[in-house]
Design a protein around this nucleic acid. Sequence first.
DNA 1: GGAGCACATTCCCTTGCGGTTATATAACTC
DNA 2: GAGTTATATAACCGCAAGGGAATGTGCTCC
Lengths: 105, 105
Amino acid sequence: MPLPFDVLAEPSRRRILDLLLERPRLVGELTEQLGLSQPGTSKHLRVLREAGLVRVRQDAQRRWYELRPEPLAELDAWLAHYRHLWTGSLDALERHLDAMEDDPR
Amino acid sequence: MPLPFDVLAEPSRRRILDLLLERPRLVGELTEQLGLSQPGTSKHLRVLREAGLVRVRQDAQRRWYELRPEPLAELDAWLAHYRHLWTGSLDALERHLDAMEDDPR
DNA sequence: GGAGCACATTCCCTTGCGGTTATATAACTC
DNA sequence: GAGTTATATAACCGCAAGGGAATGTGCTCC
């Protein structure tokens, strides 16, 4: 699974994630919140799905979309390489956590 | 400063940041490493500069590019809202660090 | 089983972005 | 000051991505 930067580059898609962070949502709700057409919303949801950032639960004609944070965790891992540049005094702690990530237990 | 997602969506630009993570570099070095044309590299560097992700130090005809991590820190702050979704047992620690961020001291 | 609802897919258009080639700028060298 | 080096800018091209309108799909309910 590649880093989802290009998927997250789209503001509407980040908005969707923010909304799903509160609770699962129907496509209709998301469409309304985003101010897009329904097909527009569906297209973004497809991209998010294929990137593994959301999953769907079908309920009759409705589809509940919910968050899948794994790709964000990978993004976090990428960021970890840079984190020491701004954390300052937390440096030692960060290194500790990074080490744990390599060898959890 | 908006979140630099769109800037980081470009693989060559992430590559540049990775290279600058080791040490500052000249445009020529970066061009060689990236396998791009020199103008191509310069265009990416301009985007990175305008996003605040790199800064330049001029040295005669040469320009040393170096990392500026502030925008990455903002990205990290954005990610923080989602982090509890995958950290599990580190949850309490995360919340503690987030609180510190609001009220450092 | 036909109508209506919720959502996905298709088609088409437009815009923006990454890439290259060619050219400009600015500093050093002799 | 002419040539060379290092980088930036300009001009142009091709393509992919976002947007909407129209249409397809599948489920429910009467």
